[in-house]
């Protein structure tokens, strides 16, 4: 019998590690992986709630999250490949055109 709180705290820790990864890594692939980690943490929380309240909707959500993550990764990786092709570099600190 594991308290639900434990799962949630674990989910929070994993999410925070993922967020840190987004913030401190310069390799866009790693950043992408960190995002996947954050999604995963959220999934964990959803499944935990689903199990705790004995409702299957949480699992359905996770199913959709996985599908969306797959789509996201497909597009994201394609983008990274294209950027690399044009710049021969994928250091995000050198991609700073996202300003007005």
């Amino acid at each position: 019998m594991v308290p639900l709180n434990y799962y949630i705290i674990l989910s929070a820790i994993l999410f925070t590690i993922g967020a840190l990864g987004v913030l401190i890594r310069r390799n866009p692939l790693i950043i992408f992986m960190s995002i996947e980690l954050m999604l995963n943490a959220a999934n964990l929380a959803l499944i935990a709630f689903s199990s705790a309240f004995n409702e299957l909707d949480g699992q359905i959500f996770v199913f959709f999250v996985i599908a969306v993550a797959a789509a996201e990764v497909a597009v994201g990786l394609a983008l990274i490949v294209q950027i690399f092709k044009s710049r021969h570099n994928i250091n995000v600190d050198e991609i700073n055109q996202l300003k007005g």
Binding site: L14, N40, L44, I47, Q59, I66
Partner: peptide, 17 residues
């Protein structure tokens, strides 16, 4: 990591996920 979380899912009664 994903594998470990998958085991959690199993523990939580979500084998399909």
């Amino acid at each position: 990591n994903l594998g470990a979380v998958a085991i959690f899912f199993l523990l939580l009664g979500a084998p399909f996920i």
